[in-house]
């Protein structure tokens, strides 16, 4: 408690001393209450003689030699990082200071567009998310409410669109993946500024996996029909299809990648063998070989 009281006294004394100094030196400064990031502005000072003017904030620090009693001009592009600033006038042992704010420019210049995922299965509700942070030309977050449009479009021209208002510089949306595989474009736009991401929609799990068997010498030639997902998209080549042959306590297994849409393999022909086919967790048909 004693320390807190001492601190209060220190603050009062410091502030009183500062004001006394300023009054003693008859100098003051008047910055604008707010400055738009990157805009030109001016600070009027009073008094006479030379002084140093500092503008100090977490985003920037500027120093200028000034003639008291004159207006100091800061051209466009000098003070551009949004935040809270203190303007301090220092002349010998005299100082004066005033706080002011730099606010983001209202015109968007860039977007940070976080779109996920870049690849997903077809037919997923709200499967694709987009989140956009809006920045001005100086990379200040534009926190004023701003309209953002999101658009997911596929090569055939079909599109899902969402209009969202950004709060505190951020807007987000979710859209469904479509039933058709392909490379879609996901675009976020604010005024004339846009950012595009690619979303690859890929086939889902195989659906109705089916194989047939034919005799080929001492072997059975096994081949699936073209493997498709439940929406009719062709499952991509390279996908593993597992053939398992069981006969009299023995078993043979082959993991075969799809090639040109089908999986094919030759396995030994054994009377009474049972052959099954699967891909991942999806089971296909069974064949009993006679």
């Amino acid at each position: 408690m004693r320390r807190r009281f001492a601190f209060l006294i220190f603050c009062i004394a410091f502030a009183t001393m500062q004001r006394a100094r300023a009054e003693g030196g008859s100098m003051s400064l008047s910055p604008p209450g707010t400055v738009k990031a990157g805009n030109a502005f001016a600070i009027q000072t009073t008094g006479s003689g030379q002084a140093v003017l500092y503008i100090v904030g977490l985003g920037q620090v500027i120093g200028r030699d000034v003639q008291l009693g004159e207006t100091t001009f800061f051209p466009a592009g000098v003070l551009y990082n949004a935040g809270h600033y203190v303007a301090i006038l220092v002349a010998g042992s005299n100082t004066d200071n005033t706080a002011f704010d730099v606010v983001p420019a209202s015109r968007p210049a860039s977007l940070s567009f976080l779109a996920r995922p870049s690849r997903l299965s077809v037919g997923l509700h709200d499967g694709i998310s987009g989140c956009v942070y809006i920045f001005d030309a100086y990379h200040n977050l534009i926190t004023a409410p701003t309209s953002v449009s999101f658009k997911l479009s596929n090569p055939s021209g079909a599109a899902q669109e969402r209009a969202v208002v950004a709060h505190d510089g951020v807007a987000w949306t979710e859209v469904d993946s479509t039933a058709k595989e392909g490379i879609d474009k996901f675009k976020a736009q604010v005024d004339e500024v846009s950012s595009t991401r690619v979303v690859e929609q890929v086939p889902g799990d195989p659906c109705g996996l089916k194989m047939s068997a034919t005799q080929s010498g001492k072997d059975i030639e096994l081949a699936t029909t073209p493997v498709r997902d439940c929406s009719g998209n062709a499952v991509p080549d390279g996908t593993i299809v597992t053939f398992t042959e069981t006969y009299g306590g023995d078993q043979s297994t082959v993991d075969v990648p799809l090639k040109r849409g089908i999986a094919q393999v030759e396995m030994p022909a054994h009377d009474g063998a049972t052959i099954s086919v699967a891909s991942g967790v999806v089971m296909g048909n069974e064949i009993h070989w006679r």
Partner: peptide
């Protein structure tokens, strides 16, 4: 591709 034959 590796075939696994005659598993017992």
């Amino acid at each position: 591709v590796i075939e696994i034959e005659n598993q017992q």
